[in-house]
Amino acid sequence: MTTNHILTVENLSTRFQTPDGEVEAVNNVNFHIDPGETLGVVGESGSGKTQIFLSLMGLLAKNGTSTGSVRYKDKEILNLRSRDLNKIRGVSMSMIFQDPMTSLNPFLKISRQMTEVLVEHRGMSEADALKRAIAMLDRVGIPGAAQRVHMYPHEFSGGMRQRVMIAMALLCDPEVLIADEPTTALDVTVQAQILDLLRDLQKDFNTATVMITHDLGVVAGLCDRVMVMYGGRVVETGTVRDIFYDSHHPYTEGLLKSMPRIDRANEDSMFAIPGQPPNLQNLPTGCAYQERCGYVMDRCCVERPLLKGFGDGRASACFREDGQ
């Protein structure tokens, strides 16, 4: 079967060995992404949304191992040796992180950090690489790029640092851009600038983008398809319209209802999902969401609902899909 998926993930599981036992942070995750598409990955802290992408970029902590399959085009890349993986990550697949200060090297000028990858991967001369770095900084809206490229990370504001990160990720024209909460640390006015930038860049470069976020507002504005994670598993998938206007999984529904909205006058009290996010070390038998779910049935406490597809890429892991 031929597809034009740029990235295909099948049965991906990621486990961590900890002093308190094994933790399954990602459990049997499947998805794909096509060129020019934006996939939103939504979930709470500890839901496994970041670990999926650290796994496929080979960036897991030392006590983590992954099984399953990750294909970039037709090439299997999961658990590839660093030397081979380096031909792909940072070149064809780039990742930007939440905190731009800790992801940039504070000792090196931006010029050095940006040209390295071009000299290394593209065989450019230092002078050409610098030209390209300046052009890219200019493209992401950094004023005075030719001068600022010679500055250190601490000389940039938070929003500007995130722009530097984005410019750096785009240097080699990646086909996949993974953005892990890229605007969470930023103020709303700067967040709006960065989201506009990501939208524009996607139009220009036709990049496949993954947007990892907990902010459903960001998802609503930017994503084509959405994958909702809970307790290390995918609990619902669908197009952005499906998820927002016709959510099937009780967790998705609860998440949407508990989001405060700036465009609505408030009601007496907010809808709150009761209880706490699950402890991955101690997941209950059956559905991980059972303790917080308003629709819980006896069956949910003994048997785990599988992700069940119902056409057009839609799926939900809930026994309510069985029609009972």
Partner: peptide, 27 residues
């Protein structure tokens, strides 16, 4: 006005069609 219009609304129709005042630069 700019602050309020910059807050993303969790509704794809509204969020994609609303008018926004995008501020340039930083504090």
């Amino acid at each position: 006005k700019a602050l309020i219009s910059a807050v993303p609304i969790p509704d794809p129709e509204i969020e994609r069609n609303k008018e926004r005042i995008v501020l340039t630069g930083d504090l």
